[in-house]
Nucleic acid binder design. Structure first.
Length: 382
DNA sequence: AAATACGTCAACCGCGCGAAG
DNA sequence: TCTTCGCGCGGTTGACGTATT
């Protein structure tokens, strides 16, 4: 026996709303406020289901609804949020002021998913569609250098003036927002495996307001600690000897990009956890283990002292592609137009924390001689 | 000009969750 | 502890507008 319907649908209007109905609903909510949707229609004199009233108000009548086309900035934000969150439209919508989850969902299904598909990106996974995605991604970087295919930031444009070679890309695994338990306005959860109940987030997260901590699972952001693999520049580029450093760079970038409405993962820079899982995961492969391998950034397991989990046990992970980039002199871009030969780059030699010449402590660093620079700007979303 | 295909998006639907009883 | 209720979500539908044949 199924669940009882939300209301007796007999004699109720369905379909498009009339101007008169809109007026009745709007006036009632202006007077009495939102809520009590079940009883609202009768009180407002509407022959509608309560759910229908709620939907009409939230998606159309609310005064803060933004009209007009989705802007390029909004589009970019939606794509990035979707890469991190998947089809969690309500959370995504909460970070795009004035837009509703329904609108974003529709826009995604009718526009953005197709755009990504054209780019050879699976709109569900944000991974390259081809099996040889890693090498193809590298190829695409070189194509981009020609200015043919992709938009790129000013920073990337500066990079591309000098870059002559894009190295092997790396399948870099970083946890998405649920995994890091990161959420907006500088609040994130750390340590627990399961995301907080989606409903609890929904109900406690009105549009355009930050999600509030529900329990002490949430932590306040902590100061950013420099990349664990070496020196971090002031511009999201890191000298890194491990993929975790690259993930730090990306996370730092996410936290600092564009506006403070976006993800705030600052506190996790010092929680990145790197581990080679290429042979274990079966999900990601590094075609050249001498250069890069997969990394998992997983504070939970580290904090819990547990083993590193296989990638496919954490389907919420997202995969990004990073490249090391070099110019004609085999120098690596460190900070915009500053190029340093790889042999002059700092090298750290142990997983144990290191104290550098200035007495500064670096978190456990990779035993590695192939220190390289990775720039998130030279990256693609699969 | 008519028929058909396609795209868009408002609205509907069923499900899951938390709160309340 | 169990049941019911109310709400909010993501997936889907279908009406409508536009483009194409």
């Amino acid at each position: 026996m199924g669940r009882a319907p939300c209301c007796a649908k007999v004699g109720l209007n369905k379909g498009a709303w009339s101007a008169e109905e809109d007026s009745l609903l709007g006036k009632y909510i202006q007077t009495h406020g939102e809520g009590n949707w079940r009883s609202l229609p009768k009180k407002a004199g509407l022959r509608r289901c309560g759910k229908s009233c709620r939907l009409r108000w939230l998606n159309y009548l609310r005064p803060c609804i933004k009209r007009g086309n989705i802007t390029a900035d909004e589009e970019e934000l939606i794509i990035r949020m979707h890469a991190l969150l998947g089809n969690r439209w309500s959370i995504i919508a909460g970070r795009v002021p004035g837009r509703t989850d329904n609108e974003i969902k529709n826009y995604w299904n009718t526009n953005l998913s197709k755009k990504l598909a054209v780019r050879g990106i699976d709109p569900k996974t944000h991974k390259k569609v081809t099996t040889d995605s890693i090498n193809r991604a590298s190829d695409r970087f070189n194509q981009r250098k020609g200015g043919k295919l992709y938009d790129c930031s000013q920073r990337s444009q500066r990079l591309e003036r000098n870059v002559v070679r894009a190295g092997q890309s790396t399948g870099l695994v970083i946890p998405n927002v649920h995994n890091l338990k990161a959420d907006l306005k500088g609040q994130y959860i750390a340590g627990s495996r399961e995301i907080q109940s989606s409903n609890s987030i929904r109900s406690s997260s009105p549009i355009n307001t930050p999600i509030q901590p529900k329990s002490n699972d949430f932590m306040q952001p902590q100061p950013v600690v420099s990349s664990d693999a070496g020196k971090q520049t002031d511009d999201s580029t890191v000298y890194c000897s491990s993929d975790s450093a690259a993930s730090c760079a990306l996370i730092d970038h996410l936290s600092s990009e564009d506006d403070d409405q976006y993800l705030s993962l600052e506190g996790n820079s010092n929680e990145c956890y790197s581990h080679t899982v290429a042979e274990e995961s079966g999900t990601l492969k590094s075609s050249n283990p001498q250069t890069h391998s997969e990394a998992i950034c997983d504070s939970r397991e580290r904090d819990n002292g547990g083993p590193v989990q296989k990638h496919d046990q954490f389907p919420e992970y997202d995969v990004f592609s990073f490249f090391d980039v070099r110019n004609a002199e085999n120098e690596i871009c460190c900070n915009d137009d500053q190029w340093v030969h790889e042999q002059e780059m700092p090298q750290l030699h142990s997983w144990d924390n290191q104290i550098d010449d200035q007495g500064k402590e670096h978190f456990g660093s990779h035993v590695n001689n192939d220190v390289t620079a990775m720039s998130w700007e030279a990256s693609f979303w699969f």
